[in-house]
């Protein structure tokens, strides 16, 4: 009898120790990135435009690090250290934002046309979502600027997602493996066919991936790169 009680207490202690909150680790490393986020089709001669950028660290989280700006031809456009670009003459230049890290130089380059007047058109990006788990997830999407502050994310008729998961959520993220620092669009309530989301106060260049996560289980279901 005494042994039985002692054994029960021993097992209870073992279970108690085993029931503490532990740590799981997520492989979330990615290459650091500089991304010019301003979209411009044509810059007018003698007109100026402030270019914006973002630096994403090795887990896809935005950090402030100053960049060096340059253009490929100062006779067509010049840019200062704050990213203010000014058209000089008609032509096309490459604009480079560059960061010097311990690991080496990283940069982003865009082409800017200098013309008679400044033109900025809205752009549309697209991609394909695919499952990275055993749960069904497939479909094509487009993401476009609806107005100055809102994006419209649209899925086509081929979209299909498993409805077996408790709490499937969709995010915009700069790390396909993580929703840390991601933008939560919302809980998924359409599992088949065309549908869309209006996303407020997010820039079209702010995120690189759409990611589906099962929130209660903290597990990734699938993703799609925004191209």
């Amino acid at each position: 009898m005494k042994i039985a009680f002692q054994a029960t207490i021993f097992v209870s202690i073992l279970i108690s120790l085993n029931s503490c909150i532990g740590d799981d680790f997520l492989e979330d490393a990615r290459d650091p990135e500089v991304r010019i986020t301003t979209i411009v089709d044509t810059l007018g001669v003698n007109a100026s435009l402030q270019l914006e950028y973002m630096y994403l660290n090795n887990v896809g989280v935005e950090e402030f690090i100053p960049v060096d700006w340059s253009t490929s031809d100062d006779d067509i456009a010049i840019i200062n250290n704050q990213g203010l670009i000014t058209g000089v003459s008609i032509g096309t230049v490459e604009v480079v934002a560059e960061v010097n890290l311990v690991e080496g130089l990283i940069s982003d380059t865009i082409s800017v046309i200098v013309g008679a007047e400044t033109v900025t058109n809205s752009i549309e990006l697209s991609g394909v979502i695919e499952t990275t788990s055993s749960y069904k997830l497939t479909g094509d999407f487009t993401i476009a600027e609806q107005d100055q502050t809102n994006l419209l994310l649209t899925f086509d008729n081929e979209y299909c997602a498993s409805d077996a998961l408790p709490g499937l959520y969709i995010y915009l993220s700069n790390n396909p493996n993580s929703i840390s620092d991601a933008f939560e669009i919302g809980e998924v309530d359409v599992f088949e066919g065309a549908h869309n989301y209006v996303i407020n106060n997010v820039g079209i260049m702010d995120f690189s991936h759409i990611v589906y996560f099962c929130k209660p289980f903290n597990v990734k279901v699938g993703d799609g790169e925004i191209n």
Partner: peptide
């Protein structure tokens, strides 16, 4: 439920 930590 465990913490989810960055392996990085």
């Amino acid at each position: 439920m465990n913490n989810l930590r960055s392996a990085t």
